[in-house]
Design a protein around this nucleic acid. Structure first.
Lengths: 251, 251
DNA sequence: GACTTTTGTTCATATATCGCACAGAATTCT
DNA sequence: AGAATTCTGTGCGATATATGAACAAAAGTC
């Protein structure tokens, strides 16, 4: 790609939108400029542009995003067949298992939820399509990383902040790589309270008809209700049934 | 705002992302240019920029959005307290009612789902945060339009394609305006299969502690299970309970 | 209240982008 | 196969934007 095929004004604007991520509902120009790492004058122009287009509100001091911004993410969710195809299968899976079922794909070192059928909220955090979790300590993340060539998985781990979320969290890259090998041979991943105390989950890859891994699905349950040792026995058959059904319909 | 405070390259890029809305998963440069109504060269640069940043994939012919694009919409969902504050109340509401409960806000002539607790899928369409429905024929949409000054509601209706989705759908603007008055006096809206045959729903406004309507919540149920005539009796008390609880916590 | 620091805005100019027009490549039609 | 059509990539002049410093206003500090 040539230099001139890159619209830096656009790239800067996207960076500004992302500055609102997580905890920043209201941003002043200076705050946004610090978060985005861009010049104040530039950020100001981007924000005023967003306001002019209705993607943001401006009260003279602070900018806030408006729901119109959801159109951008929704362009993906509604345009990509994967979430739509998976959703009904997740619903069935969730109902049969009596637990929450989710589907996600990999984006860098994070997994992104693309569909979810929740039975009852078991986690302290609120997961919806678009939500993100670090891949290394999530069951779907393990499955998706295990599906990559080992060098690539290693590269991603090296770029990940391997945080010790709970006493159970595996944080040693070599341990994780070894775990990926076990996952590849067994065909599923189990997480025993590595993300959050009290939460266990089991995941399998979702493959298309050519055997390529295109997503992962999981079932999450409270450890009190379904300890890690019982996850496979209880839920693996259901997950594999869904996995087989999806392999037949995914091109 | 001055002319020079507007970054048109950014605005154009956002338009390109929105071109992927609905049914367009894969777009060639020319297709995207037609949908966005922009010059091909401009669209090409925007798409290459998206690809360079990882928001899109390019196979030399077609562009597709990647899940990274969800970061943009997610910046809103995770940064705005409203969805997070409402979610647990929706969960309770949904469980008590044994039906799906949702929350939405108005964006132009459409409602945008910001949170949802689903019990079982009753609609043919798949609703998640970010999903959109026309306001005029949705219970939450009616409530939100009824909360606007009548002139504004009229203006929105005039810009809406009032489609006859089912034999029940109200499409006459004057009928709708009259319905808004009834909604204001009763405090809730009921939809009897106006969006989709077999689906009824009831909605109430969500007000903050100053009495401003900031969102709407609803319960949807299959008509076979809960006919429109029984919706109010069964679900209105639960909705109002949630409404009161939210008024106390929303600033 | 005077001082310092932070923030928002403006300006001139160097730089980058836009949209048009053209040419080559790919596709479709005859 | 060759013509016609559609699509894509590129060069260029006109136009729009980014930059960083400078200024003004506000906020915070003593």
């Amino acid at each position: 790609m040539r230099e001139t095929d890159f619209v830096s004004g656009f790239a800067r604007g996207l960076k500004v939108i992302e500055a609102f991520g997580e905890t920043h509902q209201r941003l002043s120009i200076t705050e946004a400029s610090k978060l985005a790492g861009l010049d104040r004058a530039t950020v100001r122009r981007s924000l005023l542009t967003l306001a002019e287009l209705g993607y943001a509100d401006y009260d003279g001091k602070f900018f806030t995003l408006t729901p119109k911004i959801l159109r951008l993410g929704h362009a993906y969710l509604s345009a990509t067949p994967l979430p739509l195809q998976i959703q009904p299968h997740l619903d069935q899976l969730s109902e049969k298992a009596g637990q929450s079922a989710s589907a996600s794909v990999l984006d860098g070192s994070e997994i992104v939820y693309i569909a979810r059928a929740s039975q009852r909220r078991v986690m302290s955090i609120n997961l919806t399509p678009g939500s993100r979790l670090p891949a290394y300590c999530a069951s779907m993340g393990r499955v998706l990383l295990a599906a990559l060539p080992e060098s690539e998985a290693r590269a991603i781990l090296s770029r990940t902040d391997l945080k010790q979320n709970t006493p159970n969290t595996k944080t040693d890259p070599e341990d994780l790589i070894a775990e990926f090998r076990r996952i590849r041979s067994k065909g599923y991943a189990i997480i025993d309270q590595e993300l959050e105390i009290g939460l266990c989950s089991i995941a399998v890859p979702v493959e298309n008809d050519r055997g390529q891994t295109v997503a992962a699905i999981n079932i999450g349950a409270p450890a009190a209700h379904a300890p890690a040792s019982e996850m496979a026995g209880r839920y693996l058959p259901l997950l594999q049934e869904t996995q087989r059904a999806l392999r037949l319909i995914l091109r």
